[in-house]
Simulated scan of single mutants.
Amino acid sequence: MTQQIVERYGDQIFNHAATSEDERLGALTAELDPATFRRLGSLPIQPDWRCLELGAGTGTVARWMSERCPDGGVVATDLDLELVRRNDGDAGVTWTHHDLTRDDFPPGSFDLIHARYLFCHLRGRDQDLARVVRWLVPGGWLVLEEPARFPIEASSHDAYRTTGMGVFTALAERIGTDCDWPRDLAGHMGRAGLIELDTDVAYSMVGGGRPMGRFWELTVEQLAPVLCAIDGITPGMVADTLVRLRDPDFREPGMATVGVTGRRPVAGPPAAA
Rank of each mutant, 00 (worst) to 15 (best):
L40S: 12
V133R: 06
L81F: 06
A224K: 05
S66T: 07
A186L: 03
P270I: 09
A148M: 07
I230F: 02
T241V: 06
C179F: 11
L28F: 05
R191K: 11
A159P: 02
S66N: 10
G268I: 12
R244K: 12
M212F: 04
L81Q: 09
L25V: 12
A159Y: 00
A229P: 13
R85A: 15
A17M: 07
A30M: 14
D104V: 15
W141E: 15
E173V: 02
E145K: 00
G139T: 02
L245G: 01
D184P: 00
G55N: 13
P225Q: 11
D104P: 12
I175L: 05
L32C: 12
T234F: 02
D103T: 13
Y160K: 04
V74S: 10
R50M: 12
V258N: 05
R63H: 14
F168Q: 00
I195D: 15
D78I: 09
G207E: 06
D126C: 00
T257N: 12
D103K: 12
G166P: 03
L197Q: 04
T29C: 14
G140F: 02
V84C: 06
R85E: 15
G89R: 15
T163R: 01
E217M: 12
E53A: 10
G262D: 06
M237N: 04
A224E: 14
R102I: 15
G108I: 10
H98K: 04
P147A: 11
R50S: 15
P107W: 04
F14D: 08
G166N: 02
A159H: 03
M189L: 09
E21N: 08
G73I: 13
I233Y: 06
G108W: 08
G10S: 07
E252I: 02
Q222R: 11
P270N: 09
T101D: 14
C179Q: 08
P211L: 01
A256N: 07
R125M: 09
P44F: 08
V238A: 04
E67Y: 06
D90G: 13
A186W: 01
G208F: 00
V143M: 03
L25K: 03
T60L: 15
A35Q: 13
I113L: 10
E23Q: 13
I233Q: 05
I45C: 11
G232W: 08
H157I: 02
T101S: 14
G92Y: 07
E23C: 04
T101Y: 02
E53K: 03
D126W: 05
G190R: 09
T169G: 01
T19V: 14
S109E: 09
A271Q: 12
W141V: 09
